[in-house]
Design a protein around this nucleic acid. Structure first.
Lengths: 327, 327
DNA sequence: TTGAAAGCGCTAACAG
DNA sequence: CTGTTAGCGCTTTCAA
């Protein structure tokens, strides 16, 4: 099963390889006769050009890599979905890598820029130091983390999301609102949600209570911690959860503990993936514009590739998905 | 920002490019002195080999493509997760493509075999005809569909899953069990679940009732159909759903219609992704061995690539996740 | 309007 | 143990 090359086509058509290449790429002057000869040879031999050879010559692979903590997380899989669809529109293919929140994995994927010569990388997992990122050269866009001065970031409006969420809980009558935050030691925009939560509570003379449960912990660990929370002496009638999974976990545990939802306890999540909205329609949440984030990410990355100027930060609007009015 | 090539390294080290190549690939006899010279030059210049050139020469990209309907579906995202992790162990990278159950998209991705010269393709979306698949040459493994004589398939034991599920519902006391099936016109192993359902009901002198809701329909459409089901005159106290999403939708609609779960209605799903198990612990389901399916898929594909012999069909065992015993 | 030839970066005969 | 050389398939000057 020998591969057909451009040379075979040239021989078949009785022309030079240059001519074949020109016809295929529509470059320069080509007579109709030449074009026809080449095209029929292509057809006859069922020839498809070798993209690798092309990539090799052009120094361009038309491949983009996406690094996420785990692709089987509703937010990231929905993001990946839209990113892939958008890239396909521009004739790019998408590599996906799971970092498992491990900096070694992350580093290996970033190596792809050098080794596999991907044209760009989208980083949705951030476990390396800024200095390490600074060394890397290539086209990188980051999602929800400012990893270096040189790397543009796409984020949703976390502060506003946190504000809306907290205000909604207050509006619904909550007196003791706790907030589940991710890792506070990390300079992630997601921490702006917590900042907003604090600000709103302060404005309302309410006491804040922040519980830190890093996103990178295992689901089992998260569940364990939440269970402990319910058996602690902490009193609460409102929870601003770190994301929708967390929110649903809390709903489950509350139910197990004979809370009446939502009357005894209001819970609001964050992300608003279509999966979670379909699956848990009673979930109140802050909806990130995931499709738009994906499109913006791709747009910025392609600009970077073309050498065009881009902004440092793109902040996209969130919106509230309120608790469904009971019927 | 000129890329460093092997030639630069050779010059820096004062040796030939061959020697550099040999050191880098650890091929043939190399003196310690040579190795040291090369390695320090590599370090000094911060050289990383160009994988594209390598791929070009070796006719091997160490890339695999995975085609799924949509990556933001818990089953496929979990499958993709494990496939990616497993491939990484063998130094392969993973492309992911969403077919949206559209045969044109599917065809385009399969073109990657020819164009981007991926070393293999894993097909989890099946919308082209068998004859079209038969034409394709290259290393392909299929998940849950026998798409052609030449293409090995990895599946879970659908018949057994269907049997266990139906028997469990009967054991729980259901008298009228309906089954939500996917597209019956398609020769998918998933239809074996339905076959098992029918067989079990027949064995128990019970009447079967199969409702067809193709997997490829939008979630909105599915919800609409399910709602209609609840407002029809069909009577049922047990449902064997097509997958866990469907099962949860049914649970939601049943709740809205004031069913008491699980006393009034027993529902069992299919898939058992860890996401769904964490999110909806009260969900009874047939658990597919997703991680094992992923590993088997990779194993078979790598064998294919190496030219080794593989079986036609790999059927992996499922297991029941029973309804949690109430406390 | 077309062709010859060089070269992208790397590896693998083949010599020495 | 190391170097010279050819060539993977394609595109692009450069010449004709």
């Amino acid at each position: 099963m020998e591969r057909i090359t451009i040379k075979n086509v040239a021989e078949e058509a009785g022309v030079s390889v240059t001519s074949v290449s020109r016809v295929l790429n529509n470059r320069g002057y080509i007579s109709d006769e030449l074009r026809n000869k080449v095209m029929s040879a292509v057809k006859k031999l069922n020839y498809t050009p070798n993209e690798i050879a092309r990539s090799f010559f052009k120094n361009e692979t038309r491949s983009i890599a996406l690094i996420v903590p785990t692709i089987n997380n509703p937010f990231f899989s929905e993001l990946a979905f839209y990113i892939e669809r958008e890239l396909a529109n521009f004739n790019y293919h998408l590599f996906v890598g799971n970092s498992l929140n491990n900096s070694m994995n992350e580093k290996e994927y970033l190596q792809m820029l050098d080794e596999k010569r991907v044209d760009g990388i989208i980083v949705g997992s951030h476990n390396m130091g800024i200095d390490e990122y600074d060394k890397i050269q290539g086209n990188i866009v980051s999602i929800e983390r400012r990893i270096s001065e040189k790397i543009p970031m796409i984020e949703s409006d976390n502060y506003r999301g946190g504000k809306i969420a907290t205000e909604e809980l207050i509006k619904l009558g909550c007196k003791n609102i706790i907030c589940i935050s991710g890792n506070k030691n990390v300079d992630a925009p997601a921490n702006n949600r917590v900042a907003a939560y604090s600000d709103v509570l302060k404005d309302n003379n309410m006491e804040e209570f922040i519980i830190e449960i890093p996103f990178s912990e295992s689901e089992e660990e998260k569940l364990y911690r939440l269970n402990k929370l319910f058996h602690s002496n902490i009193n609460f009638d409102g929870v601003f959860a770190g994301d929708d999974l967390m929110a649903k976990y809390i709903m489950n545990i509350a139910n197990e503990n004979n809370f009446n939802l939502p009357s005894d306890l209001k819970i609001i999540g964050f992300d608003g993936t279509s999966l979670m909205q379909n699956l848990v329609p009673e979930l109140m949440t802050i909806v990130q514009p995931i499709e738009r984030m994906a499109k913006t990410t791709v747009e910025v990355l392609l600009k970077l590739i073309k050498g065009e100027k881009v902004k440092d930060v793109y902040t996209l609007p969130v919106k509230l998905k309120a608790i469904p009015t009971s019927k």
